[in-house]
Amino acid sequence: MRFDVEEVFETASMTLYQNLDIRTTTLGINLKDCIDSDFAAFQDKVYRRVSTFGRSLLEKSRPLEVKYGVPIVNKRIAVTPVSLIMETHCTVEKYLAMAQTLDRAALDAGIDFVGGFGALAQKGLTRSDAVLIEALPEVLSATQRVCAFLNVGSTHAGLNLDAVNLLGPMLKETAQRSPNAIGCAKFVVFVNAPEDNPFMAGAYHGVGEPDATLNVGISGPGVVRSVVERIGSATSLSFRSVLSARCSRSPAPAN
């Protein structure tokens, strides 16, 4: 197989001049087997699982960045929807404690965000789902890296208006509690949520997934930023044509 200098230059210049990067690697982790009736033991298992897998993700990422000369910008973790694993521990205090455990595990491992603090409530709310929603304002304001989600409807089941009804006050309280309302930026509400989702802030590890799944998102934002900086001012139409030309030569944006 032969590569000419033009081909090598084209690829190298994507990373050197056009900000091509791996925008994110998101490691989905199953936490169902961490469930324990002893809450302290449960927290300990979750901490170990998330921090161990998180460190492993970082250790494996660095050599790949060097080997391919492509930076990996974000390292994230998505866990099993927390309302499922907290069914037997559903108090606001324990939800907050679990959020802090996840936050600490992510921080200690050097993980940027941990998603999955949410519930699949498209057809109705379990007690655990309702307590999770009640805990969210404090969870989202008291933690740095924990991201939350709620699925409140589907084409099949319609909208869960009980859940929707709780969201307004929950979001308002979250905004009031966190500086610049940043807590709300760490929450995603879905209708027709997929079985599994690697995209923050609404990432979670689906129940049909194996123990761990790695998702890789190629840069969209970095390439777009490079194009915007290069062309300066432009009409939306001319910007679109420049971006289309650029994207047709670059890998498709995935995140």
Binding site: F3, A12, K67, Y68
Partner: peptide, 16 residues
């Protein structure tokens, strides 16, 4: 100078 080191596989993926 800008110097970039990259494994050949990235060029295979991009151009072949």
């Amino acid at each position: 100078l800008r110097v970039q080191l990259q494994h050949q596989n990235i060029f295979k993926a991009m151009h072949r």
